[in-house]
Design a protein around this nucleic acid. Structure first.
Lengths: 335, 335
DNA sequence: CTGAAAGCGCTAACAA
DNA sequence: TTGTTAGCGCTTTCAG
């Protein structure tokens, strides 16, 4: 039988004090005499009191919960970020609610809006909706963007410019000259920073394609045959690309080298093992929570400072078996 | 600027009725005259009213939220179930909160207990804590177990006996005679039903090992060299096993055939493509929500009926490249 | 069919 | 340092 819930009033009665005193004891809102403090604590322990989140929120207090919105939990990229965030939050004593927007901007906004009413702060992972609309959805709740930047809003992201550069330099140093970059969804922030870099470096852009295994297969079909090295939007695309390439009789890395992005777990499991640019997934989640907690802290930074709260995490190339020196060029016409 | 929240009272004022009337209109709790109904609806639309979940819960009503607890979101098995569940819930107009227990029973109980206070019902995926403790944690909130059974409690699960059988029959029909089953964690419900079946069929049990890629690698080392076919606890184990086998110079499927379980997405991406027993992941999530919604419905089944609410979903073998006929046996000593 | 009124459990002034 | 007093927004008797 579900025992009746223990309330503040119950504890107060047990301890022989007023419920507001118990509240203060629980929240550390004011200083109490050591005597009552221990008396209250004993009552709490005896009764097994647990604060009621709904009541707290209704009364305008903190709930101790953080909301996390991700586009797709089945994407290892996001589940890794979510896991890192959740762990960091729990270590700080905060509960997390995760919600999956199914990569639909409307859903993303709806979820953010819903969650915003029930939690103290929000972590929005790779949100695609316009900043303006995001603002409206969260209605002033402290929010940090993960893997996306926006003017004057707290955010944490991996160094995307570095990601492209490190991948490009790698294949370039191997001797490749015809290098392609497979574009992901154009609306993503990540694309807007990567693609100019890729272009400047001299890569030829192909796509855009969906950031999925299926997208990678499509990209394979669209690839110029002269290209000997490909850098992809993410590992999923790389996986689909490699798979399609192999199926069509081309060898990896003998005929074409492939570099993925994100270094998700399976990258190390497939054959050939995928060379990939490792993103600090766990770190992104943790850093996101760290920033959010700071925003939430009583001595909260002013709104002005909040804009300055951006964190950029470095990436790292993990070299495996999907990259090698380019095939010998067709013999040039004799002199 | 975050506009002030629109409340029932605001709507009531706008419509010229009492707030209780608006409440009734919103919840369909009682019959209203068509006239007021439309008047209220118009006011709601005009003001953009959204019910406040915390207030609802505090007042003892439904919140329209469902909690989902999974052991590990980075495990594709669970993220697929969670996705299915979330979609089904959203289609029914329910919000979902997902929490990851990090595969720790204590955490699992804590999360269930926390969530139980904020949602209408719970979906517990592959919970490992004892039934008694789970009961205590959810405190009478409608709860359905996914991928785990317990006496007299609503649950949905894949047909695990069939899973072992179908895998075993497959390699057996290929001609294998020395067949091993790699055990997962012994405390899992799934293990308690599968292992007796495997044993009865004639498989030799090895393990237990962790249900991870690393566990698979360990299993490879522990494998009797005479074994020509292996059925694993899940695909992750199969992946690790295959990888270790290949690294140690044995060929798959030429020397040893491997059958995974769950048919997670990467099973089709690795080389050799993994033969696997597909579990109805999306279906499990959806079925779980379906049962839960039924439990939640006003004409809720009595507790007695609840125990009868179990659903078993069929599995299906997906044959790929990791299984083949066994290698020719070493020539027997001549007659 | 609809209004009035009493809380749900908690926090936050405001007094004392 | 502690008690008193209002609500937070909503559901739900109980009248009418």
């Amino acid at each position: 039988m579900p025992r009746p819930m223990v309330t503040l009033a119950d504890v107060a009665r047990e301890a022989g004090v007023d419920s507001s005193t118990v509240s203060r004891a629980v929240n550390g809102t004011a200083s109490l005499s050591p005597a009552t403090r221990t008396r209250v604590q004993r009552a709490i322990d005896k009764l097994g009191y647990q604060p009621n989140r709904a009541a707290r929120r209704l009364a305008g207090g903190r709930t101790g919960a953080i909301g996390i919105v991700v586009p797709d939990l089945t994407n290892p990229f996001f589940s890794a970020i979510a896991r890192g965030a959740q762990r960091a939050a729990h270590e700080a004593g905060e509960l997390t609610f995760i919600a999956d927007s199914d990569a639909r901007p409307a859903e993303e906004l709806a979820l953010a809006a819903q969650l915003a009413r029930d939690v103290d702060g929000l972590l929005l992972c790779s949100p695609t909706a316009p900043t303006r609309q995001l603002d409206e959805a969260v209605r002033g709740r402290p929010t940090v963007l993960v893997n996306r930047r926006a003017r004057n809003r707290p955010s944490v992201a991996a160094d995307q410019e570095q990601a492209v550069e490190v991948a490009y330099r790698h294949v370039q140093s191997l001797g490749h000259r015809e290098i392609a970059y497979v574009r992901g969804p154009t609306t993503k922030w990540i694309s807007t920073v990567r693609e100019p870099v890729a272009e400047r470096l001299g890569a030829r852009l192909v796509g855009p394609f969906a950031p999925t295994v299926a997208g990678g297969a499509e990209a394979a079909a669209a690839l110029d045959p002269r290209v000997t090295a490909v850098i992809t939007h993410n590992d999923l695309v790389a996986l689909g690309l490699v798979d399609a390439l192999l199926s069509s009789g081309r060898r990896v890395p003998d005929d074409v080298s492939v570099v993925g992005c994100d270094d998700i777990e399976v990258a190390a499991l497939v054959r050939p093992r995928l060379t990939s640019v490792a993103m600090p997934l766990d770190g992104l989640g943790r850093a996101g929570i760290a920033v959010l907690l700071q925003l939430l802290s009583p001595d909260a930074a002013s709104d002005a400072d909040a804009g300055a709260m951006r964190r950029t995490l470095p990436v790292r190339l993990v070299e495996r078996d999907s990259t090698a020196v380019p095939p010998a060029p067709a013999p040039a016409p004799g002199p």
